[in-house]
Design a protein around this nucleic acid. Structure first.
Lengths: 215, 215
DNA sequence: GAATTAATTGAACGTTCGTTTTATTATCCG
DNA sequence: CGGATAATAAAACGAACGTTCAATTAATTC
């Protein structure tokens, strides 16, 4: 047999992407076979190669679009011109919302980097670095303005990102906590961690602690 | 040929373990072939099966011993009976020291869980939960004693552990920061995050950073 | 120094992998 | 309605996989 009734390239490609994200997140890139993926889509393995020339191309596409989506989401959510605390809050909220919403895709982009070729790894890391830099800038601005108390901007940014991204490890929608509850708690932990002076009230944390080093 | 001069079962097994941790951390469990591992050890693939009946047995052994080592390290480092802040500081210091020291093995234990059978996954997760519970107890004690300000003990524990474990992603020994600098910064971030009242002083959480025990 | 045991090799097994090729059918366009 | 093209199936490719087995040699024991 050959072309099946009702077959449509766009729909098939979208189905492949979706199934691939789910399968790779669950089994891992190396453990997922192209035949398994094809079966999930309801197609023969050879049909996949109409849309993605190699298995690695498929992985790279998924990762690139995940990172692009993350940056896009932040571009849409970032406050125009605001104080560091407001910008930090927006960053935290966007980060957590995005990562909870795209748990599988985040899993893939974080765990399967080693399966990329050198060049493609570099491309993905460049996107990631650009996204992380946004947070470092916020922290630096806040530290310079004296509203944050941060010892080391780069280290703090990494710590915050790992803390926030880690939410996908344990969070399951519909369980004990809602997304907004989780976000609120992470937001308050973040503000304490960076020693943010309360939005108008007295100081919560800070005082001593040395001058900050720039990265 | 057959047995080689100077061959010794114990030494070979140790070499296999060491090479396996390094290779799996670098390539991933699925991507590492038994022939690759054997070549790294300087032996034929068949020789590996003298020590580990299957590839998964090898992985499981590495993980089990990693988790056992972590719990053992904490048992040795835990303060006998102390206030929550001191215990939390000890937990953070032990956690970071252990994870930096055993970066590769941590990578394996955190990233390759999905390659375990159901039973073995359960065993590893049981160990991990037991270790994490130690932190939750510290946080709860501190919250009940009024020396910590924690909204949600479980969530805070997960956030802290992910933040601390994340150090292995970016930390490289001999670069910008020393282990003790990193530990000190993480300790101060932790104390602020949990809203710790200073050890004996009057205010501010970041003061805890100054009082730092050596690693 | 012979018998036994420990450690390893080299070759092979069947399976599965990613991928390619070729043929076949549905759909679209005139 | 008929030719072009898009979408797939079916079968096959060589390579690599985890693993097993028999043969062989080093070390140990008596």
């Amino acid at each position: 047999m050959a072309r099946t009734t009702g077959s449509d390239g766009e729909k098939t490609e979208a189905a492949v992407r979706e199934a691939a994200v789910s399968l790779i997140a669950r089994l891992g890139y190396e453990a997922m076979s192209m035949r398994q993926l094809a079966a999930e889509v309801g197609v023969q393995a050879a049909a996949l190669y109409r849309y993605f020339p190699t298995k690695e191309d498929l992985l790279f596409t998924l990762m690139r679009e995940h990172m692009a989506g993350l940056i896009e989401a932040w571009d849409a959510a970032r406050p125009a011109a605001a104080d560091p605390a407001t910008r930090l809050a927006a960053y935290v909220e966007n980060h957590i919302a995005f990562h909870i919403e795209r748990r599988h895709s985040t899993h893939v982009s974080n765990m399967e980097l080693r399966s990329l070729s050198h060049d493609r790894l570099t491309q993905i890391l460049k996107l990631r670095t650009a996204y992380e830099k946004e947070l470092r800038v916020i922290l630096r601005d806040g530290a310079e303005a004296g509203v944050f108390d941060v010892e080391d901007t780069g280290l703090t940014a990494m710590a915050l990102i790992q803390m926030m991204t880690g939410v996908i490890v344990w969070f399951r929608p519909g369980e004990r906590l809602s997304i907004s509850e989780v976000t609120a708690t992470y937001l308050s932990m973040t503000m304490r961690l960076v020693g943010a002076k309360a939005h108008g009230g007295t100081t919560t944390c800070s005082a001593a602690a040395g001058e900050q080093r720039t990265l």
